[in-house]
Design a protein around this nucleic acid. Structure first.
Lengths: 343, 343
DNA sequence: ACGGATATCCAAAGCGCTTTGAGAGGAATC
DNA sequence: GATTCCTCTCAAAGCGCTTTGGATATCCGT
């Protein structure tokens, strides 16, 4: 049923060499011949055999992933969403995954083994921390990689895709301040992750510019679950001087926070304002909250897709992608933000 | 650095054929010779080139997975845990994954494409529903597969690994009845999934055997999140005749349920008893609850590992695994169950 | 002592692709 | 008209493994 190169070449009355070159975009083949080849491919449904390509080129056509088995990571909604984006793109190019579950303490060994195995052409790294040692390690491994996120305090010369977390939360905080809010709380992700650090930093900068400070009693760091959002918000509301506005690092956290606010009988956007970061999880849309949420938006799935594109493009030496990308999150105002209540 | 078969054969003064046979367990090789070969492998660190094996054997050495992109599935804690088990085993045998994200409506096409691509040797299927049409489809595709879970109402002649959900919840309910409980509630997983159906059935059977019935107002079906556990429990407690015991389909649900119970000022194991199904999620151990939970236990990760083993064993034609396995969950009694309160 | 098993091993032919090194033909140069 | 230079194409050599179809040597009974 399935034709191979040889048959295709015979069919066309050309040599395998020429057909192969035509397909792989080499210059030394007549434009007209190339068209004939492409036409024949369409008609026969020819698909090159990946195993043969792997063997001939020495490329693995697959990307490696160390899947962290640690609380609050693999189990995370956000992980699935990102992975979906990554896989969606990979499958288009017929790339495989090598998923390598690993406890944090074994990660280095796992990475080394993966790189040495020859089973992957590139690696991907996420959940960046400040001074993340994995970056230096990967550099020393001489295998291409792309980082999702950025470290802090490390040299900047490594390929990454990150969103501008600092600006996102700077913008969000500034909006709240402009609306007259003075006591603003923060429900953030885990303290050691770099995105959390940057978001807090952005918020601090906005406050400082207006002569305000952040009350550490109004800051919570945790896994980004509904549960934690709920508890954190409850704690804030029990404070002697509760905040009039909150920033949440995820719509999942916001879900819990909203619940606590409602339970306390407060009105969102009125008694208390809320801005959440929106990773565009299809199952949790900020516009569908009973009071639609003001958000800083950046699609996690799109980031996955983009990283796959860059990784694969790099391997195939197609296209030319920037080594470092910093996506700006959009600040989208909906009904959950309003002027600070007058006392 | 890395040696190949040819070099290894030269080193040993044997032919490639013999070395290959020695490694792949063929009978026509002297036991002593085989030992020499294995020794040399150990010394040189020889690893067969997978790409070459793929090409020579026509096997893909990889397993395909359709990753559902639907609310409450991929995003689930349980998914990550299962996948970790699967991947852990796969990586040992140097197997790859082809992850294929797909919306439910495109699943059939995705499966067909995957099977036809020759990129996978076997498929894996989960999230079974009653009368699940995917089973008949996969059978028609003539590619090996293993189902995690079982359908209901379908013919039984397909390979699966499931836990005995009916018995698990039968046992749990019976224990509660023996403790004097008469009004028992159920916080279950999504209504359309077969494990939910079976768990409910098991519970019903135990009740019926003791002349009891299930009040449908005491049954909730939902995604297995903390949030839903909380809400469901709250609803039950507001009932005119609240239950004296609850069954939860997951420790994640139980987390929320416990919160609601505490909030209502009730004592677990005293005012109200609780039994949860425990998938052995490392981040959420029933023994660490403030009142340790009585559970029906069966490790999800172990199931993933086992399915990978069967899948890979089947592909390599090694070992002989049962086509159908039904694991019995253990009923482990801890402090969350006690005699029904006397009124 | 001889034909025929039996036990071990080997040479060589693929698997389906990429890529090197060269050749054929025509256009451009002198 | 001879020489050089492109442009386009091809034959053939791998990539590293598995597997077919012998070959060789050993051992058996008769």
């Amino acid at each position: 049923m399935a034709v191979n190169l040889k048959q295709l070449a015979e069919l066309l009355g050309l040599s395998q060499t020429t057909v192969s070159r035509a397909l792989n975009g080499y210059p030394e083949v007549n434009a007209e011949t190339r068209q004939r080849v492409l036409q024949a491919v369409r008609e026969t449904g020819y698909r090159p055999n990946r195993a043969a390509q792997r063997l001939a080129t020495g490329r693995a056509y697959s990307i490696g992933m160390v899947m962290p088995i640690a609380p609050g990571i693999d189990s995370d909604v956000h992980f699935g969403e990102f992975l979906a984006g990554l896989a969606e793109e990979a499958v288009k190019h017929d790339f495989h995954f090598v998923l390598n579950p690993s406890a944090p303490e074994d990660e280095e060994v796992t990475f080394r083994r993966l790189a040495a195995s020859g089973n992957v052409d590139a690696l991907f790294l996420a959940y960046m921390r400040a001074n993340d040692p994995r970056i230096a390690m990967l550099k020393s491994l001489s295998i291409p990689f792309v980082v999702h996120g950025r470290s802090i305090g490390e040299s900047r010369d490594y390929p990454f895709l990150d969103i501008d977390n600092t600006s996102a939360f700077y913008d969000a905080a500034r909006l709240l301040i402009q609306l007259g809010h003075q006591r603003i709380a923060l429900i953030n992700g885990p303290e050691y992750l770099s995105f959390s650090i940057r978001r807090k930093k952005g918020m601090l900068r906005a406050l400082a510019e207006h002569g305000l400070t952040l009350d550490e009693a109004l800051v919570e760091h945790s896994l980004m679950t509904d549960e934690h959002g709920y508890r954190s918000m409850q704690r804030f509301l029990q404070h002697a001087q509760p905040p009039t506005a909150v920033l949440c690092s995820s719509t999942v956290l916001a879900l819990g926070a909203v619940r606590a606010i409602n339970q306390a009988g407060l009105k969102i956007g009125d008694d208390i304002s809320l801005i959440a970061h929106d990773d565009v999880l299809p199952m949790l849309k900020p516009e569908n909250f009973s009071v639609p949420l003001t958000t800083t938006r950046s699609s996690l799935r799109a980031a996955g897709t983009r990283i796959a594109t860059r990784l694969i493009g790099g391997i195939l030496k197609r296209g030319d992608y920037p080594e470092q990308e910093l996506w700006r999150a959009e600040l989208i105002v909906r009904a959950s933000t309003g002027p600070a209540p007058q006392k």
